[in-house]
Simulated scan of single mutants.
Amino acid sequence: MKATLKPLTLAAAIAACVVGTQAHAYEAGDFIVRAGVTTVAPDGDSTQVYAGGNSLGADSGVDVDNDTQLGLTFTYMLDKAWGVEVLAATPFSHDASGEGSFLNGAGIGSVADTKQLPPTVSAVYYFNSDSAFKPYVGLGLNYTIFFDEEGGSNLEAVTGDLDVDLDDSWGLAAQVGFDLDLGDNLLLNASVRYIDIDTEATLTVKNSDNALSLPAGTRITTDVDIDPMVYSVMIGYKF
């Protein structure tokens, strides 16, 4: 799914228009806290969907929708160029919908709902922290936790109640962004990051009294490459 770039475009426009801002260089020991809008836009690619070990169609799969929440970052500067950043957020909620001839043909839209938290620790490098405009890049490690998984109402209408499990994920994360020094230790921040998030989804039929005559215990499985782009616009404060 594609996320709008309007917040990032607005942030870039503000950065381009701000002139005469007195710059304060980052130094070892500086602590930067940021908060703002963060959108997770999954790629949503998946393998074929299997039920009881049988493929539901060569083009069967799932797609995952976008969500926007409060994003938080905490950065500790090791020196004027290098810092360690932790990404946090309020829980993201995602709906997974069926794709392909079988799922769409059966009228199955929503197949599962889940919440997730993607804490990420990154090393960040600022190209010129002496200036008011401070561009940076980052590389780090992500651990995504899935919870509150539920069967989608459309799918459960034909399978009955489902037990849903999504495996947690480890993966790399990369980002580009900038801080704009607004004075008085205030910052405007914008960033774009890619996170490698892969999960195996397992939906287990709880009872055999269902429209598809699936035996109780039948497992519906697929591997999902969520691999989202994450867009953030934040206000920060340097201590």
Rank of each mutant, 00 (worst) to 15 (best):
L155G: 02
S101M: 04
A89L: 10
S101Q: 01
Y26C: 09
G57E: 06
G61V: 04
A81K: 13
V84N: 05
L72S: 12
S93D: 09
P118G: 06
V137E: 09
N128L: 10
G29C: 07
L139N: 07
T47D: 13
D67S: 04
F92M: 06
A123Q: 12
E150Y: 05
Y126T: 10
A28F: 09
Q22F: 02
L139T: 13
T120M: 07
G140T: 02
S46E: 11
P91Y: 00
D165R: 07
S93V: 12
L103R: 00
T38V: 11
T75C: 03
Y76D: 01
K80D: 15
Y76G: 02
A28C: 08
D148M: 04
S60I: 06
F92A: 14
A28L: 04
V124L: 01
E150C: 01
F133N: 03
L162V: 12
T144R: 06
V164S: 07
K115Q: 03
E156C: 12
G57M: 01
F31I: 10
F127Y: 15
T39D: 06
D148H: 06
A88T: 13
G83P: 02
Y136L: 13
G57N: 02
K115W: 03
T144K: 06
A123S: 08
A51C: 00
G109L: 13
Y126V: 10
I145T: 08
Y26N: 15
K134T: 04
V158H: 00
T47V: 08
E27K: 06
F127K: 13
S153N: 12
A51Q: 01
E150D: 15
V49N: 03
Y50M: 14
G138L: 05
P91A: 00
A88S: 08
Q69A: 11
G98I: 10
L166E: 03
V40C: 04
A88N: 10
K80H: 12
A28E: 11
V37K: 14
H94C: 10
S93C: 04
A28Y: 11
F147V: 11
E27T: 10
L87V: 15
G105H: 09
T114S: 07
V49A: 00
I32L: 09
Y126L: 11
N104G: 15
D67M: 07
T144F: 08
K80W: 09
G53T: 01
W82T: 10
S55Q: 11
G107A: 09
T75N: 07
G53C: 00
